[in-house]
Design a protein around this nucleic acid. Structure first.
Lengths: 113, 113
DNA sequence: TTGACATACATAGAATGTCTAAGTAAATAC
DNA sequence: GTATTTACTTAGACATTCTATGTATGTCAA
């Protein structure tokens, strides 16, 4: 059963999977992209991001591959897996349900009894 | 500063304040109302609800008053305070911002670059 | 070349909210 | 008379996020 708790604690997971669905990215890039795409709203800290990425990888939802740049620097790019895509689709619909439920409470229809 | 974490952990606070804004309620009633108004989505457990109510009361956002029913049973009714009303207004706008930010990530505009 | 800043990843530990689970107690329905 | 519903409380487990720190390199300006 889908619990409200899962949605809350899994919010960052959905955001990360959604980003990686569009293109593979590395950690630092993810921080910047999330901030840019949310118009400055999301500012992930390292202490949030990297443990989250490790969890997702351990769960098989993403896979990380080290890549070496021409200048010798190392980056770890993360790719979403088929399992991750399926999970993302599920979580998106769960988010929709959650939004709907919250709105029903915070913005009740005044015409209803 | 408003952090994402505050929104997540404070989600139940907003829901409770919003309910109590409409009318004073007691714990058991809140559980039933939340479930009814969210069309079955929210099913608060006692272990979530009562500590949350106690936190809100300690923060001065609600006040609880024991009332004795004709049959002798005791109920603790909670009333939203002026401080609670102000807090609720703030949190509603924060929720709106959060919704918007999440949607920007999960449902990016395909026409944007 | 020194310093400042951005890039890039990692992790220990604290704080906090939610859940499970158990306890207490009484009214009501069958 | 017993099962269900009402009604509140709290201890303890668990998970996520944050703060804070560490490591290391590249870039740019003074």
């Amino acid at each position: 059963m889908v619990t409200r708790r899962d949605l809350l604690k899994g919010s960052s997971n959905s955001l990360l999977l959604s980003l990686l669905e569009q293109q593979p990215m590395y950690g630092y890039q993810i921080v910047k992209e999330l901030e840019a795409r949310s118009q400055g709203y999301f500012k992930f800290k390292e202490g949030t991001l990297y443990p989250a990425l490790h969890r997702l990888e351990k769960s098989g939802l993403i896979t990380g591959r080290w890549q070496t740049l021409p200048n010798g620097r190392q980056r770890r790019y993360y790719y979403i897996t088929a399992k991750g895509l399926a999970k993302l689709a599920l979580e998106k619909s769960q988010w929709q349900d959650f939004f709907t439920a919250v709105k029903l409470i915070l913005q009740p229809d005044p015409s209803s009894p």
